Amino acid sequence: MLGGAALAVVAVGGGVAIAVTGSYSDDGKPSTSAGAGTSLVAVQEGPLSSQVDQSGTLAYAGGADGTPYPVVNQAKGTYTRLPVAGTQIDCGETLYKVDQEPVILVCGSTPAYRDLAVGDDGKDVRALNKTLVDEGYAAKSELDPGSKHFGSATVTALEKLQDDRGADVTGKLDLGQAVFLPGPLRIGKVTAQNGTGAAPGRPIMEASSNRREVIVKLDASQQSEVKKGDPAQITLPDNRTTSGVVSRIGTVAAAASSDKDSGSQPATLPVSITLKHPKDAGTLDQAPVQVQITTGGVKNALIVPVTALIGQAGGGYAVEIAAGGDGRTRIVPVTLGLFDNANGRVQVSGALTAADRVVVPST
């Protein structure tokens, strides 16, 4: 005679919880016959991978922390030309104009903070030299792109750039004549307006790189599951899929939010995924996507459906397998391994083989 049903909740990767049940006799021993509404499924043997499924946002990559780059003006005068949102600016090109004088984008991580001329040394000079060489204003044999020194070769190449951009040809770079940012850039929000006064030290727009990435807000409790280099599959809004790889995992969790309507929300970490084939994303920006990150795998595992798991009265899990051709079954305790959330499968180990068949609810 069958007694109560045991209920357990299996927490699997990706924040999914699945309830599993198992029937036991009144003395705590498992039943020995398959119940109605069940079927038998063969235990599989082979490779298995685990995944984390999350929603994400397809956008253009920003700085190291994922935020946009602030474009800070250092020139004095009046804004006479500003880019519109979505404009792409390459290294060495005019970013905007003040009093009709071009402010040039120099690609480097050290912000503009001084005038540059012959004899100066520093990381900002190296960024200038590299930009001049990369954009064809000097050959590597003429100007070392890794040099931190502002020499005569820098002067010659800078004069060519200034002439090309319609700037005063001086062979030096005064503060305010260039913006130093990692580039090329894609312009985001522009806060300055043409015809208004340009004040040094004031942010006037935001920009991102022209690289595509997907940002996922990962539940902080899943941080140990995902690592840099994990492969990912991104489902685009039109249901096409493209591949990517985890390129950055944030270290600061966003504060949990709560209100009377929605209740508490779990803290999250930003995870950046770089697209392997950026052209697949087209011109989509701030587009919602679905992401599946593969977090682990085994080459050879015994695999059963998650729905085959039953909770044991003393704790742990088991599966019910066919004991013969007469419909009788027996309970086999199992140890759980990887979960394949996408396909509802789980790795198990115990006294069973690929020749066995497990009891699952009929669909």
Results as ranks from 00 to 15, higher is better:
Arg248Val: 02
Gly15Ser: 10
Gly244Ile: 11
Gly324Met: 10
Ala8Leu: 06
Gly201Gln: 00
Ala157Cys: 02
Ser209Phe: 04
Ser33Gly: 01
His277Arg: 14
Glu159Tyr: 02
Gly92Cys: 08
Ala17Lys: 15
Ala342Phe: 11
Lys299Ile: 00
Tyr317Pro: 09
Ser141Trp: 01
Ala351Thr: 04
Ser49Cys: 02
Ala255Gly: 06
Pro70Ser: 08
Met1Gly: 04
Thr295Arg: 07
Gly197Arg: 05
Thr363Glu: 11
Leu158His: 07
Val106His: 03
Ala8His: 11
Ser224Lys: 11
Glu142His: 03
Ala59Lys: 14
Ala256Tyr: 02
Val348Tyr: 10
Ala267Pro: 01
Thr353Lys: 13
Lys148Phe: 01
Thr87Cys: 01
Gly344Cys: 07
Ser23Arg: 13
Thr242Trp: 04
Val271Thr: 14
Leu218Ala: 12
Thr94Ile: 12
Gln286Pro: 00
Arg186Tyr: 07
Tyr317Ala: 08
Gln54Asn: 12
Leu40Arg: 15
Thr170Leu: 15
Tyr113Pro: 02
Val306Phe: 04
Ala267Asp: 00
Pro184His: 10
Val298Asn: 14
Asp340Leu: 01
Ala301Gly: 09
Ser272Cys: 01
Lys140Glu: 14
Gly197Val: 10
Ala256Ile: 01
Asp219Asn: 15
Ile187Asn: 13
Arg330Gln: 05
Cys91Asp: 04
Gly146Phe: 08
Thr251Asn: 11
Val298Asp: 12
Gln193Thr: 15
Gly171Ser: 09
Gln223Val: 05
Asp99Thr: 03
Val358Met: 06
Val52Tyr: 03
Val334Cys: 13
Gln44Gly: 05
Pro83Glu: 10
Leu40Gly: 08
Ala112Trp: 02
Leu173Thr: 07
Ala301Tyr: 03
Ser258Gln: 14
Met205Val: 07
Asp124Ala: 00
Lys97Asn: 12
Pro266Asp: 15
Ala355Arg: 10
Asp53Ala: 08
Gly46His: 14
Gln74Asp: 13
Leu336Val: 13
Val346Phe: 06
Ala232Glu: 04
Glu225Asp: 14
Ile321Gln: 08
Asp121Ala: 13
Gly316His: 10
Ser362Trp: 08
Thr251Leu: 13
Gly35Leu: 09
Gln88Thr: 15
Cys107Met: 04
Glu225Ile: 06
Tyr137Glu: 07
Gly201Asn: 00
Asp26Phe: 11
Asp27Gln: 14
Gln290Thr: 14
Val332Met: 09
His149Ala: 10
Leu218Thr: 13
Val246Ser: 02
Asp340Cys: 05
Ala351Leu: 02
